[in-house]
């Protein structure tokens, strides 16, 4: 959620149960502005908060020229001092997923250890290796995965220009009330993964400048989103059931939209049982 709209947008996602104190809000407004200038971001966003047992991490996201490709993540424990998160690689994701169990601690240098054994019983002694991952890496991977899986924008809010850069659509006026009730009109904000599986008739009405992202309605398993109208039925709120804690809001007929993640940073892998 954009740092400029922080003062009202936090109220719109408060229905999920998490708010920020006044102290944190003003601290964020100050520090994100400085952050934006220091790192030369086009936009600085408050990405969310990950709850740890001792401390909580605040996560900020900086976006450059291209909204999808030029992204940097920073974390902070006190909303003032921001530290850059390491870049996520495939091997890092694998390491973290093997080593990490349970809650975040709230200490970036905390080291998770997991003894991982290759192969079956007899060879276990030879193939054993200890994987060590510190919490900073885990944080980077978690944030990356959440953004990959459940970052949301309304359809039409971003356009892709001929150079391939994804930019804000300045003429976006918001979804209408009836459009806002349909999951097809919300898109994943990452590079398209699924490829073109749609039939040509479906794609007929698409505009290449707008429809370059995956729609939420194609998510597997079906029903991993909860779409409701809240705040006296004026705001459309989407909650992810896959990553509980992610809340997206959009005020129909206005360009206001945004998402925030406030949660324990754990994926809901039991989702199929719970539906």
């Amino acid at each position: 959620m954009d740092s400029c709209s922080l003062y009202y947008s936090l109220d719109l996602v408060a229905s999920s149960g998490h708010v920020l104190t006044v102290e944190q809000r003003i601290a964020l407004q100050t520090s994100l502005l400085i952050l934006k200038k220091k790192y030369k971001f086009q936009r600085a966003m408050l990405w969310g908060k990950i709850l740890g047992i001792q401390e909580n991490y605040f996560i900020a996201q900086g976006r450059g020229e291209s909204e999808i490709k030029d992204r940097k993540y920073l974390y902070s424990l006190d909303c003032m001092e921001w530290f850059l998160l390491p870049l996520v690689t495939e091997s890092m994701i694998e390491e973290v997923s093997k080593a990490v169990r349970g809650h975040f601690i709230g200490e970036p240098s905390f080291v998770y250890e997991q003894i991982h054994s290759h192969g079956g019983g007899e060879e276990a002694a030879e193939g054993e290796e200890v994987i060590r991952v510190n919490e900073e890496k885990r944080l980077a991977v978690t944030v990356h995965l959440i953004d990959e899986d459940v970052s949301v924008v309304p359809r039409g809010a971003f356009i892709r220009n001929p150079l391939g850069h994804v930019q804000i659509n300045r003429s976006f006026e918001g979804l209408s009330e009836s459009e806002a009730r349909r999951l097809e009109n919300y898109l994943h904000f990452h590079e398209r993964k699924t490829g073109n599986k749609k039939s040509i008739t479906d794609m007929g009405e698409w505009s290449p400048a707008i429809d370059f992202l995956d729609a939420l309605s194609d998510d597997i398993p079906k029903g991993s989103w909860s779409l409701q109208f809240e705040c006296a039925s004026r705001v459309c709120v989407l909650r992810s059931l896959l990553w509980p804690g992610l809340t997206f809001y959009h005020v129909p007929m206005t360009p206001q939209h945004g998402y925030i993640y406030i949660g324990f940073g754990m994926k809901n892998i039991d989702l199929p049982f719970k539906l």
Binding site: D11, L12, A14, S15, G17, H18, V19, L20, T21, V22, Q24, C231, A232
Partner: peptide
């Protein structure tokens, strides 16, 4: 107080 505790539903909703 809940707002200071970083929980709550927003002031308007609480009043409702």
């Amino acid at each position: 107080y809940l707002e200071q505790a970083e929980v709550g539903l927003g002031r308007e909703e609480m009043q409702r």
